[in-house]
Design a binder for these strands. Structure first.
Lengths: 92, 92
DNA sequence: CCTATATTTAGAAAATCTTCTAAATAGGCA
DNA sequence: TGCCTATTTAGAAGATTTTCTAAATATAGG
């Protein structure tokens, strides 16, 4: 939603690791959880933050929920950084 | 220093605003502080986090400390995001 | 319909973060 | 030297975050 939420979401190492996992394709909450030494509830918490930040979206299948990376929001963050860096192009 | 520190540093709105101010050129701690409704001590705290994350560097002059944006670290974050986004180039 | 599996929600504990006030440091200049 | 200005450090209060356990929800399949 807001940049604030997106940057907050990116600030946690677990959540960045989740995003990296999703780089290769969508995974269910359980599959994601199996990569971490944490309870499913904790993974669910992190996923909810990534979801609120629009960094991932979900789609249900059977009783699994698959999560997928939303590259367009990643792109938006890159644009903010590009503007901060400045000097290459993209000035108004 | 580490990505962890850099992303944490970027996760706070005050610190992102400081970086945006520095986009136009270096400013002293006091000049930075004058843009915010916060004590100098708090600004100093935020500057220390930006400094640890290598997002800014400082240089002293008289008894002022000027802060400057470190664009190379901004660049590194962009590269991480580009890799996450994937598909454009930069794969190993 | 009942049970088993996948995931989320609620609530609480512990850790971390943000902010303040007060005090310390450091440098320049009369 | 002694003071003034700029900034940081220390310590504490309050807010937010991360994690857990236990319970709730949802759905598939017998």
């Amino acid at each position: 939603m807001s940049f604030a939420e997106t940057f907050k979401a990116l600030s946690d190492p677990v959540r960045r690791d989740i995003l990296t996992l999703l780089k290769k394709g969508s995974l269910s909450a359980g599959e994601i959880g199996s990569h971490f030494d944490m309870t499913g509830a904790t993974i669910s918490y992190h996923l909810s933050i990534l979801k609120k930040a629009d960094l991932v979206f979900e789609n249900k299948q059977k009783n699994f929920i698959y999560y997928e990376l939303n590259t367009s929001v990643v792109e938006e963050v890159m644009l903010w950084l590009a503007d901060l860096r400045g000097g290459t192009d993209n000035e108004p």
